[in-house]
Amino acid sequence: MISVERSMAVGRPCAEVLRYLADFGNTVEWDPGTEACVRLDPGPVVAGARWRNTSRFRGRQTQLEYRLEEYRPDQVVFVGHNRTVTATDRITTRASADRTLVVYRASLRFHGLARLAAPFLRAEFERLADAVAEQLPRVLAQR
């Protein structure tokens, strides 16, 4: 399993930040690897909502179906899967003076033969996490 975590401070209220991040369709704005993210079901963004995320990783396009597993006032948890990987994205927020501290943690559990490649992919996932930590605060500042 590979896990990466980044913390960042943004000058927006916690509730607003979490509401934005709870809509996984917004990943096209703040996750540099995401090319498209389409909601698969109608209605409000609540636990159980689903998206199809299309990303590019190491030059190859991949799709995962994500589900919002948990939506609390301070945290959202998404679980995505396809036949080679299960990805869990946990995003927590906490008020800190006039800012919001956002902690983004992504964990990837590979299946089948893909497990053998996991140790060689860590550096690439670290790079992607760095890119998220750079882009997400900028996107939130513009909202």
Results as ranks from 00 to 15, higher is better:
35 E>Q: 14
36 A>L: 10
36 A>N: 10
39 R>T: 05
40 L>F: 06
41 D>E: 14
44 P>C: 12
44 P>L: 14
47 A>F: 09
50 R>G: 01
50 R>V: 02
52 R>C: 05
52 R>A: 05
53 N>E: 15
56 R>A: 13
58 R>Y: 08
58 R>I: 05
62 T>F: 12
63 Q>K: 14
65 E>R: 08
65 E>T: 14
66 Y>L: 12
67 R>A: 03
67 R>H: 07
68 L>A: 04
68 L>F: 03
69 E>Q: 08
71 Y>K: 12
71 Y>M: 13
72 R>L: 15
73 P>M: 08
74 D>S: 07
75 Q>C: 15
78 F>V: 05
79 V>C: 13
79 V>L: 12
79 V>I: 15
81 H>Y: 08
84 T>F: 15
84 T>V: 15
85 V>T: 07
86 T>Y: 04
86 T>H: 06
87 A>P: 04
87 A>Y: 04
88 T>N: 05
89 D>F: 01
92 T>Y: 05
93 T>I: 12
96 S>W: 04
101 L>A: 03
102 V>S: 02
104 Y>I: 00
107 S>V: 09
107 S>L: 11
107 S>F: 10
110 F>H: 01
111 H>P: 08
111 H>Q: 14
112 G>H: 09
113 L>N: 04
121 L>A: 14
121 L>G: 06
122 R>P: 01
123 A>F: 11
123 A>I: 10
124 E>K: 10
125 F>Q: 07
125 F>T: 04
126 E>K: 13
127 R>I: 06
131 A>D: 02
132 V>E: 02
132 V>F: 00
133 A>L: 03
134 E>H: 07
134 E>C: 04
135 Q>S: 06
135 Q>V: 04
135 Q>I: 02
136 L>V: 03
138 R>S: 10
138 R>H: 11
140 L>F: 05
140 L>V: 06
140 L>A: 01
141 A>M: 11
141 A>N: 12
141 A>L: 10
